[in-house]
Amino acid sequence: MMTVKLQIVIGIAIVIVFTILVNMIRRRSLELKYALSWMAVLCALFLFDCAPKLLIVVSDFLGIYAPVNMIFFLGFCFSLVIIFSLTVALSRLSNSIRTLDQMVALNEKRLQELEAELKSAKERKGQEEESKIWKN
């Protein structure tokens, strides 16, 4: 059985992390979309922390001796899931950056070409007008 002291320590830690999380979302340095999974983990951990009896039921079911191990085990599994989802997001992002970078570069090239065309067109026009003035 978990000691009450450990229960309190874990509880406080969860509350602190949760506060930091909420604060970061408030300051928009963390996307709510990506914070949701962390919040779910914290809630689950908090639930088990408050009601260790619930843990005993689950850990008995899974055949784990100590409920505290159960918390660590679940936390570990959730962390892995989150890290994996981040890897997926990272792959998607790097592909987006690649496409964006290429498009920006090619558009910049196109822009330079158009500018050069415009410039030479203007010069031609200027010369034509000049020659018109001379004719008159």
């Binding site: 690649r98 290429q102 570069a105 090619l106």
Partner: peptide, 18 residues
């Protein structure tokens, strides 16, 4: 053509193909 983020050889060559 000037890439503004380093993409590595694959990304650079692909830019050429595009």
């Amino acid at each position: 053509v000037n890439l503004s983020v380093n993409l590595g050889i694959g990304g650079a060559v692909q830019t050429g193909y595009i």
